[in-house]
Design a protein around this nucleic acid. Structure first.
Length: 272
DNA sequence: AGTGCGACCCGAACGC
DNA sequence: TGCGTTCGGGTCGCAC
């Protein structure tokens, strides 16, 4: 499940592989993946060069000069660089062919990912981009900011941490890890969260996301970031996917519950 | 406005 | 050559 650390890893890997390549043609196999007009997509991309790759929250942003190609990997999206002559895999839905006869291929078993092509000046008009909150690795993320955003909400703190308009980039794995590191019970309501706890959330999300990026993200289940790159952060996970295993701190049994429909792992002893 | 929940997908895991 | 059902998970859209 690509969260901010995984998307950052994809960004860094892709920058090494496709920067400055010129697009020759595009093949859109699964049209519903596009949020923008398909005819524009096919007409505008050829001739463009990938001059940079940026990221906002979980959105990857290919800088094409006067346009941005936005890509959200959702749960299983991956990019592969292949030879244009290679057989097309059944999960490859969008194929960007470069003039050197290599392809950037978007692969997504669940077809949940989305792409959007916008003029640079229209980026801030894209609803999904406009509403992104502050990133965990940003100095703008403060306990005060979090408290303001959280203290009037009745939702469980776990659900609030998944709200991209507050902290941009946290997903199900790191939200569990942040709450464990902050010693906060996932079902605790936003309006019960103190300023001290906001400080802990801020500190632990910075620390955890920084570390996760350093180790190339988390590879869980089917998810490898892209291009066969395997993250190594899973060996540092304290609670996520550890149901019934012993807490590394107190040896209590890690529990799994549902919060807002999502699997949530926590230590019943450390997180009261 | 804030909150809750189904839909979108399909491979894997599970039940029998 | 087992088959049908359930689950998961980020985000959106709709209902209340």
């Amino acid at each position: 499940m690509p969260e901010i650390a995984e998307v950052e890893t994809v960004r860094n890997t892709l920058k090494k592989m496709v920067l400055n390549k010129e697009i020759k043609s595009v093949n859109v196999i699964y049209k519903k993946m596009l949020e923008s007009n398909i005819d524009d997509f096919l007409k505008i991309l050829p001739g463009k060069k990938i001059i940079d790759i940026k990221r906002i929250g979980k959105w990857l942003i290919f800088d094409l000069g006067d346009y941005y190609l936005l890509s959200h990997l959702r749960m299983e999206g991956k990019f592969f660089v292949k030879n244009s002559l290679d057989e097309i895999n059944k999960h490859e839905h969008i194929i960007i062919t470069f003039t050197d006869n290599t392809d950037l291929r978007y692969h997504d078993t669940r077809k949940f990912g989305r792409m959007n092509l916008v003029r640079k000046e229209d980026l801030k008009k894209v609803e999904a981009i406009k509403k992104q909150g502050i990133e965990p690795i940003s100095n703008e993320l403060t306990a005060h900011y979090l408290y303001e955003k959280i203290h009037a909400k009745k939702l469980p703190i776990k659900t609030i941490l998944l709200d991209q308009t507050i902290i941009a980039g946290l997903g199900n794995i790191y939200a569990d890890e942040v709450l464990f590191a902050s010693k906060i019970y996932p079902l605790k309501r936003g309006n019960e969260i103190t300023m001290e706890e906001c400080e802990k959330i801020k500190e632990s999300s910075k620390k955890i996301i920084t570390e996760a990026i350093k180790y190339g993200g988390t590879t869980i289940k089917s998810y490898t970031s892209s291009l066969g790159v395997t993250g190594r952060f899973q060996q540092f996970l304290m609670v996520h996917k550890r149901e019934n295993a012993e807490c590394f701190i107190c040896h209590a049994k890690i529990k799994r519950i549902k919060v807002g429909g999502r699997s949530t792992y926590y230590c019943p002893n450390c997180q009261k």
